[in-house]
Design a binder for these strands. Structure first.
Lengths: 343, 343
DNA sequence: CTGAAAGCGCTTACAG
DNA sequence: CTGAAAGCGCTTACAG
């Protein structure tokens, strides 16, 4: 019933705790005969090492804390996967907290993580209110890295990408296709900085081509299919609707696509739709979605790699990686029909 | 730099560790003045409680271990969400291990979890090789519950659903639509028991309607879009292809749908497609997918609830819950065209 | 190569 | 209401 501890193994094998501990961690330090006997005893008693007690004793930690906005949505699953895989390789366990894009809850999770003695922290984006706390973490010796974003601060590590540039490129692509009325369905940019960067990228691209910015063309929404659909619905019922819509999330794009079809319109002949994220399913939509590929998996892996390096001592220097994004051109965007182009 | 411990707080406040510990856990036991002073000291020194040390000391655990096949796929995300939400409510943290449908790796994860002193374990399905280990866990006082499956063994707890019945109903539905040539694209039934139950449900339904079972109509595949697409491709190139295809996973169904469209065929006029899981996106496919709704979120919540009850002492009795599934009828299934019906 | 002892940060009877 | 002491399961200088 009660679980077997090192102490009991020691007693059964007629040695001290220290020696048992040694056969677990540095078997070469123990006389072969003794070692084998102890291993024997551990086996037959189904001894299971208590990693938590071990960590406490040697003042180390082997859990990595990860904060993502939500696990319900597939947006972050590649990142989580990249993190878990890499963490596991290094013998670390991952705990995940869902912030729901809320700063207060991020802060709460950070404290919870701290109580659980995490070895390092990975954040999905950096909310305004969190930077200070991150610095505290680093002061306390808890290395932290931000993903999904590129930061201005030079003292916080990140493995991210340029949201501005990614959105800028896609908008430019649509403009290159001769669209002038380009709608934008976008996530919670009021609350989330990296989403705001996407908005800025969109605006800047328009601006550079002297296309007037029309706030009726912008919809801020949660990352759900329904929201994407509803936003598109509204866009379509505008007196002079857009000829292309950039949905800055594939989930929103899929919702938008559905709305277009329900209105008996065709993509891309009647209206173009572009997405963001390059989730698995985008290649399987009808038509396949033009979108921007995000280095989701890579960011995860890199973030853990950075964490490891910091844990192993090179904590002194700040590392900042901005990974590339790619325009993935598929069939959901085309030039607007002639009668749609304002001459 | 070094983190503040209870001991230092005690010294600063001029009390013993015990008293500080008391203000953390049972403040009412401490004289108000003393308590306030101590709280004061904790605040101004940013004291953070060490939950790991606490757990060790009071011989309890506050982490729940969860094993799912994969986190990459959205299939399990509702379950994970249900679990995390409920666990959090009870002050528990969740750690997730990905087994990749592999028994050996499940066993490994279980040991890892054990080393991390989990308070309880939630498994997604029960592989043949794992039952024994589960019983060991329960013996050791680690309550365990299985989800996504209904078990025969009367001594293992579960919060699942009837895979056989779910697949049986859907197959029956297709038969009711007058389909006689019904293809099946299904997950790894050779390795996974609950998937085998689905296969059995399909077979039994056919059998009850004296529809001969045709092994050319069955494709076993991984749960990916590509696999669904390829399987459908093969099905369509059969000399006498099915008039309906039951893809026992929405992801496979989405892949299948793409293949059908690429072949210039229409769903459901030329061929019907049914899915399984009722993932978010199914209502947004073109056409919206007929599928079976799985109580994914509910299973997660219930599993944690059961775990809590067991942790709180009623560990003696085995609880087994089989939740309902629903046929979700949308537009991807219809009667076969007349010339397809064998008279 | 091995053991005794002190310690990781916290808790909990027990005694006062 | 509070403190001294033993303990959770493991580790690690130190000494031999």
């Amino acid at each position: 019933m009660g679980k077997i501890t090192i102490k009991e193994i020691a007693k059964l094998a007629g040695v001290s705790n220290a020696t048992v501990s040694r056969v677990i961690h540095s078997p070469h330090l123990v006389n072969q005969k003794t070692r084998e006997r102890i291993q024997q005893v551990m086996e037959s008693n189904n001894y299971v090492y208590d990693a938590v007690a071990g960590d406490l004793s040697r003042k180390k930690a082997s859990v990595i804390g990860l904060i993502i906005p939500t696990i319900k949505n597939s947006i972050f699953s590649s990142t989580v996967y990249g993190i878990q895989e890499k963490a596991e390789e290094g013998g670390y366990t991952t705990i995940i907290g869902n912030s729901n894009y809320d700063t207060k809850s991020e802060l709460n999770i950070m404290t919870l993580f701290q109580q659980r003695r995490i070895a390092g922290l990975i954040l999905t984006g950096l909310s305004e209110g969190v930077s200070k706390r991150i610095r505290e973490f680093m002061q306390l010796g808890i290395p932290s890295v931000v993903t999904w974003e590129k930061l201005d601060s030079s003292d916080i590590c990140y493995a991210g990408f340029d949201n501005f540039k990614a959105a800028y490129s896609m908008t430019n692509h649509l403009i290159g296709l001769r669209h002038k009325r380009i709608g934008l369905i976008i996530g919670p940019y009021t609350r989330v900085r990296r989403v705001r960067s996407r908005l800025d990228g969109y605006k800047t691209a328009l601006n550079e081509h002297s296309i007037p910015f029309d706030s009726d063309f912008i919809f801020e929404s949660e990352y759900t299919l329904v929201d994407g659909k509803e936003a598109m619905q509204r866009l379509l019922s505008l007196p002079d609707p857009p000829t292309a819509v950039f949905a800055a999330s594939d989930v929103l794009a899929m919702g938008a696509l559905t709305a277009v079809k329900e209105n008996g319109l065709r993509v891309p002949q009647d209206i173009s739709i572009a997405g963001f994220d390059d989730l698995d399913f985008t290649a399987y939509l009808d038509p396949p979605l033009t979108t921007v590929r995000i280095p989701a998996f890579e960011m995860g892996q890199l973030a853990v790699k950075m964490l490891f390096e910091m844990i192993d001592g090179e904590m002194n220097q700040v590392r900042q990686y901005c990974l590339d994004t790619d325009l993935i051109i598929r069939q959901s965007c085309a030039e607007p029909a002639l009668d749609n182009i304002s001459l």
